[in-house]
């Protein structure tokens, strides 16, 4: 393995440490939940591997014990994961690398993979493409492994360290603060926080994300239009 690739793996490992901690906790919780619902450990493990979208997997786990409704499963998947559309639009350029790695990175673009891959400034000696690939791989691995642990040892594991799941919240706060420090113009950041928190209070947690995205896009559209008009009139 050449140096840039090894460096990419080490750097990815370092950058994903908080995610490892968070996923270990949430993944085990998810595995234990499925175990308690009476599922073999293969269910949480394979679902973690194939779906790789935490919040949706909890929902699917609860759907599996009810009657079969394929259309509602599909719609739920689209609604819960609609935010990924935003990730992909933002990553069109960064993920545009040659070869098979790209397809795996798109497949594995969960909240954490997107956030780390978008925000990390990669040092020169590290290969950028391989870094983003390893971040995705490692996150995928942490998630599948911890879901499997929860499913396997569901009845034996008892958590004493209540509150460790806050690692994920802390990670997103840190990435957001980094963004605030780095940017000159806070319009987009504030827009994201304000729109989504107002809609969360009004609409509740089920539907606030897709509508926030629509509203943010609309705000951007109006802003761009104004800019064009101001340009034309000057």
């Amino acid at each position: 393995m050449d140096n840039a690739k090894t460096a990419a793996f080490k750097f990815a490992l370092k950058k994903t440490m908080p995610i490892m901690t968070g996923f270990l906790f949430i993944g085990i919780t998810y595995g234990v939940y499925m175990h308690q619902e009476g599922f073999n450990f293969l269910y949480p493990t394979l679902m973690a591997f194939i779906i790789f979208a935490g919040s949706l997997e909890f929902v699917v786990a609860s759907l599996l014990i009810h009657t079969f409704h394929p259309l509602s499963v599909f719609l739920l998947a689209l609604i819960i994961n609609s935010r990924h559309l935003f990730y992909s639009v933002s990553m069109l350029e960064k993920y545009n690398i040659d070869g098979w790695k790209k397809y795996y990175m798109i497949f594995g673009m969960c909240d954490e993979s997107f956030s780390v891959n978008y925000t990390t400034e990669v040092p020169e000696e590290v290969d950028h493409g391989w870094f983003m690939f390893y971040v995705t791989c490692l996150n995928h691995f942490y998630w599948v492994f911890s879901s499997m642990l929860g499913g396997l040892f569901g009845s034996l594991i008892h958590f004493n360290l209540n509150g460790l799941s806050f690692v994920m919240t802390a990670l997103f706060i840190v990435l957001f603060v980094d963004q605030l420090i780095r940017e000159n113009n806070h319009v987009s950041s504030l827009c994201g926080v304000l729109v989504s928190s107002i809609l969360l209070v009004i609409l509740g947690k089920e539907f606030f994300l897709p509508l926030s995205m629509l509203l943010i896009t609309l705000i951007f559209y109006i802003k761009e239009n104004r800019k064009v008009k101001a340009h034309e009139s000057s």
């Binding site: 990553m91 978008y118 997103f172 963004q179 987009s188 950041s189 989504s196 509740g204 947690k205 951007f220």
Partner: peptide
Amino acid sequence: IPAFIQQLGKFLPPAILGMLVIYCYKDLPA
């Protein structure tokens, strides 16, 4: 990439990061 989409892709990420923080607190109002 169409210009509008390219600009949108540049505008969105800070908003997404803010949205993700709020997403972590989604159970709070209830």
